[in-house]
Nucleic acid binder design. Sequence first.
DNA 1: GGCAGGTGATAGCATTAATCTATCACATTT
DNA 2: AAATGTGATAGATTAATGCTATCACCTGCC
Lengths: 309, 309
Amino acid sequence: MTHPEKLSIKQIRYFEAIADSGSFRRAADRLGVAQPTLTVQIAALEKSLNVSLFERQRSGVILTPIGRELLPRARRIAEELRGFSEQARDISGGSTYRMGVTRTLGPYLLPRVLPQLHKKFENLRLYVRESTPAQLGTELKSAVHDVVMTTLPLQGDELEIAPLFREPVKLAVPLEHALAQKRSVTGADLIGESVLTINEQHLYHKQVSDLCESLGATVNHDFEGTSLDTLRQMVVMGMGISFLPALYVASEIGDSGTPKITDVDGVTMSRDHALAWRRRSPHRVTFRQLADAIKEVVKADLTEEVTLI
Amino acid sequence: MTHPEKLSIKQIRYFEAIADSGSFRRAADRLGVAQPTLTVQIAALEKSLNVSLFERQRSGVILTPIGRELLPRARRIAEELRGFSEQARDISGGSTYRMGVTRTLGPYLLPRVLPQLHKKFENLRLYVRESTPAQLGTELKSAVHDVVMTTLPLQGDELEIAPLFREPVKLAVPLEHALAQKRSVTGADLIGESVLTINEQHLYHKQVSDLCESLGATVNHDFEGTSLDTLRQMVVMGMGISFLPALYVASEIGDSGTPKITDVDGVTMSRDHALAWRRRSPHRVTFRQLADAIKEVVKADLTEEVTLI
DNA sequence: GGCAGGTGATAGCATTAATCTATCACATTT
DNA sequence: AAATGTGATAGATTAATGCTATCACCTGCC
């Protein structure tokens, strides 16, 4: 007999309005509908619920005891519906996007660009999670993230990839190391050197391995860092030399002088970073705008460290 | 752009079902509707809210960030609607009725009949309020009470009045009083006696006044009780004699012997009580049944004190 | 490269629901 | 008795929902 599917939002609004007005006619005037509309709809509501909500009198209507008990519930439903619409209105200017980032870039770039981004996107909210570049691509395709900031290469016809900038890598040398005393370092100086890096599951490991191979240096497999911070500490402690990304250097080392930071003459190693999202994402326009905005911030503030591409 | 009136309960249910299924087709199968129905309704919902709720893919759909944020709200609305229907279902077996009672009857009758009434009306809930018979009639007409139990007479074409029973009045005499020693008391014994009663706004006062006038006794205007209890205390303290209703006597005095309780030979004073409600009340069938049930309890348990009418 | 299959979208038609105008039924007030 | 005010009813109109059939697109397989 009671059938939830037969309820309608208008019936609930009519119930509320009549209870407030104490009269079908007055409620109809207020709502801008014809009085028989209310009569028919309330009768339908009463029938579907199998209760009487109002006692009809010549001078209007009064709530029955049942009507009195159900009215607060009707009000709550009306309130929840208002909240639904209002939240949608609030959100349509921006939602909470899930952003995946690499741990070798995210923590050192986002603090540099987010303040400026918030000036441009007032409602931007990001839920940032770290992952490896290999996993970030898969996770983006399967919607674990809405958008990712990662190191190229990244594959996927279904993805939209917006290149951001090229980040060079610096050589980090212990202060007591012979190379620290040299005015300039060349590739030949690295032959035979043992180079520390972070562990194998990171793209960064592969990039350093390839560089070492081309230079005649060797990758230290006995000691591997789990993050750029631990890598730096190992260098400071004299366990070997290492390569560190420029943004990390700018963010965490700066002018401290520890370890010694230098370029390698005639050798260029760098990493290209990009923002990526699914082509069919309803937010793809926003993400395109976000990529453009990041590039503008980089152009304005970070050209000492990185290069736009 | 956002228009709450354009929302429908079905759209919200469809939103929830598609989010749970991850596919329009699968949700359509579950709901027993055609897939294009969902497409059209979700598109309408997205348009009215000015947001995208789902990202469409070949393999189904995934929630957008906005969709993720709004889904809990949709679930809450669905839950509130279920609660509304369920509460109506629960209530349709009985609601909380507001019952007005006289203070000279209600407190001494209801404890005697309610246990039996609850066996018959499992969902009966009463919110009992005391008032004077004069006010109870007015208050019933203006829906302050849903139903009243009061002392006759009661006027009102718009009311339905179900007589319940006739309650005699007993003479209460201080133990030290001369009348307390008499084996039986007649009307002539009361000539010139000062009779205590409760104050004038009560119908009880008028009934005792009329009786005194016919017997040649006088009403004591110097001392008036505010309730039957205070009246009894005044009698116990020797301030005069008084008349007390039989149900009060049975309930509050019993066999205590204090004060002395007796009949007056050849004199019958009693009060008729009734249950009354508005003729047009949607609960009038229930109230008629309630009146019948009260009379049955009275017939079974209270015939030593009162008489059915 | 072509075909099959799976998804959501679109179009047109049918059905159902909501709403309106006009009027009725009833009770109270003048 | 007539006027007035309320909610109820009937029939016509309008709006909304849902269906069937088909299209558009994309992926995977041969």
